[in-house]
Amino acid sequence: MMADGRIVVEFVAADGAVTPRADTLLVVGDGRQPGPAEGWAGMVVAQPAATAFTHALGCQCCLPRGGLAGLMGDLFRKRATGGLKWFTRLVVVPPPGQEALWRASMEKDVLAQARFRVEN
C-alpha cells in the first residue's frame, strides 16, 4: 500500500476552533486575520481572489481556474518553489454559508484533487 502524499485539507466553520501547528497554512475567506492570541503569529494567511467558483457553460478543461482551486494551485506552486514555508496541512475557513461552494470548487478541479485531499 502506498502512502498518500497529498496535502491534507480541513474545512472549518468560521466560528470553529482551529489548532495552529507549524505544518499548517491557513486560508481565511472572510479576510479576518487571526492574531497571536489565536496562535497564528508568523503563519501565512491567504484569501482567495473574488472570482466565480462555478461556470454554467464550457467544459472543465476550458474553464478558468478561479476561487479556491486557483488559490490552492498557487499555494502548491509557491510551496514547491520555496516561496512559502513547507506545509502538509491546509485549513480552510470559508465565509459563512459558502462551505459547499468552496468544497465544490476544490472537488471539481482535477489539479486540486491531485495535490490535496479533504480530510473532513
Rank of each mutant, 00 (worst) to 15 (best):
D74A: 06
A112Q: 03
M1T: 03
M1F: 08
P36N: 04
P48W: 04
V110D: 02
G67C: 10
G42A: 11
G31K: 02
L63V: 08
G39P: 06
P48A: 10
A13I: 10
P94D: 08
A52H: 02
P95S: 13
V118F: 04
G35T: 07
L75R: 04
N120E: 04
G39A: 09
A69Q: 01
D23T: 09
F11G: 01
V110W: 15
K108H: 12
R32N: 02
L90P: 05
C59Y: 11
E99P: 08
A46D: 09
R32E: 00
A3C: 12
L71G: 11
P20I: 10
G35H: 06
A80T: 12
Q60D: 12
R117V: 11
V92L: 10
Q113A: 15
Q47K: 07
A46S: 12
T24C: 13
G70F: 03
H55C: 11
E99M: 15
E99V: 15
D74W: 05
M106A: 14
C61S: 11
E10K: 15
A13S: 14
A3Q: 10
K85C: 09
M1Q: 05
E38L: 12
R89Q: 11
L26D: 00
G82E: 04
A14P: 00
P64Q: 08
E10W: 11
W86C: 11
C62F: 09
G39E: 14
R115H: 15
L84D: 00
G42Y: 12
A100I: 15
P96L: 13
D23W: 14
Q33T: 07
L101Y: 14
A69E: 02
R79P: 01
Q33H: 14
P36I: 13
F87Y: 08
L26K: 03
M106D: 02
P94T: 07
L57D: 06
F76W: 14
A46T: 06
T88H: 09
A14L: 01
E107F: 07
G16Q: 03
F76S: 02
T51G: 14
V118P: 01
T88Q: 08
E99Q: 15
A114K: 07
A49M: 06
T24M: 14
A50I: 09
P96E: 15
A104N: 08
R79H: 03
G31S: 06
G5S: 13
R117K: 15
P95K: 07
E119F: 07
R77M: 07
S105E: 01
V27P: 03
R89A: 13
Q113R: 15
G67T: 00
A37L: 13
P64S: 12
E107V: 14
A49W: 00
V91Y: 04
F11Q: 04
G29M: 08
M2Q: 02
A50T: 06
V44Q: 05
L57Q: 06
R6N: 03
M2N: 07
I7S: 03
L75D: 03
